[in-house]
Design a protein around this nucleic acid. Structure first.
Lengths: 224, 224
DNA sequence: TCAATCGTTCGAGCGCGGTCGAAACGTCGT
DNA sequence: ACGACGTTTCGACCGCGCTCGAACGATTGA
């Protein structure tokens, strides 16, 4: 009998199919209402509410009440990272009769991870940004290079704009097994990609689909 | 209803207290027998056997039969990483009435992570090895510096000895939130620390306790 | 103030899965 | 060959927790 952090308690929260579906849905990064999550999980509203209560009590979710709507979101990057880690094991261990359908292929190329871009494109982007010395890596921590502020400002991203959270952060990619860029800069870049309509989000999925011209624009700006 | 990797299936495996205890025990890195794991989890032998069967079926464990003993071990680093991630969330989210007892403090300083050293000491060690250019970091991947082979050979570690797995690898530390050194070199260093009796393993725990002279020796060799 | 919508709480049903004792199986000592 | 030990299988018990319908609470807009 060993003690320490109660890992079973956390894991069992994720272990219920309905709750797992809710958490997966929230990995999209946008906070959702109880009704939306009930639909997503395929359970009735009372059942969903009960699950949400448990996830809240477990500290995995945050709640923002706006009028009669109550928006649930992931509690933070650490929780998102855990979900990614579990997803990675599930994907590695369970290719049992689950062929990698077209949607999975799209997910591998580019997808939303909490609030930033993940997948092959995102990993390649971070590599290039480091190569170009716009970012400098030191372990999980990523710093801004000397010319970062002016460079990003030129494409409409103010790296000093959001004080609250670290500007850059590494986040491990479950499909590529290497890091991609998280943090407020990662979030801002995803915002830009969607705002410029370089890519659109697949309905009911985390997949991000680039249009052909959008892909070129993205590569010109971030993979050059 | 979303599909994709069956995260609930994996999480629910970890979600049972008995199985969680077994997995935590296996995070010590050494493979254990069914009886030992039953004792560790506080359940009867038949119950433990049932749990082990499920963990095997889920792909989280490997099995090595040696005579009438059957040794169970974690299936790989990815599984170990997932456990660490869950542990991190549990530790962050559940400081509810669980004060950081003396054992926890020791765990934070140095502990075994699968097969290598983790904790503050391990994080500091990786930092220093990189500073001294004995190792070079590139994302999760860590390479050997130019003088690495001769340096480590001088202290009795052959970095080319184990072909199977990557020599170096970064592993995220749940207490410090930065990376420490995994891979065969990480394992070899832990072996040396224990072989030289610089430190001993706490009974029934992952904690690694340095003796005062052992700590000095360790710091002279790896933190100089 | 009343109706409409969103969400939670209550109560009861019920099935899945954890639990253990007893027995069967397999391997190793002598 | 036999007995001892480690492990798995079988069968039965039992309770936790998921589930939903119905009722209650909350917030908004007319």
């Amino acid at each position: 009998m060993r003690e320490g952090p109660d890992i079973a308690r956390i894991a069992s929260l994720v272990g219920d199919p309905a709750r797992a579906n809710m958490l997966s849905a929230l990995m999209g990064g946008t906070a959702l209402t109880a009704s939306e999550l009930a639909l997503e999980a395929g359970v009735s509203l009372p059942t969903a509410s009960s699950h949400l209560g448990k996830l809240m009590e477990g500290g995995l979710l945050t709640l923002a009440s706006q009028g009669r709507h109550r928006y649930y979101g992931l509690a933070g990057p650490q929780v998102a990272g855990m979900i990614e880690a579990i997803t990675g094991v599930a994907a590695a261990v369970g290719p049992q009769r689950v062929r990698p359908g077209p949607r999975d292929a799209a997910m591998r190329v580019a997808r939303v991870c909490y609030d930033h871009l993940a997948g092959e494109q995102a990993v390649a982007m971070l590599d290039r940004l480091v190569d170009r010395n716009l970012l400098v890596r030191d372990d999980k921590e990523i710093g801004l290079g000397p010319s970062a502020a002016s460079h990003f400002a030129a494409i409409g991203i103010d790296v000093g704009a959001r004080p609250r959270r670290p500007v850059c952060r590494a986040c491990l990619d479950w499909s590529v097994r290497r890091s991609h860029l998280a943090g407020s800069l990662g979030a801002a870049i995803l915002d830009k990609i969607l705002a410029e309509k370089w890519a659109r989000r697949e309905k009911d999925s985390r997949a991000v689909i680039f249009s052909p011209p959008g892909k070129q624009a993205f590569e010109r700006v971030f993979l050059a």
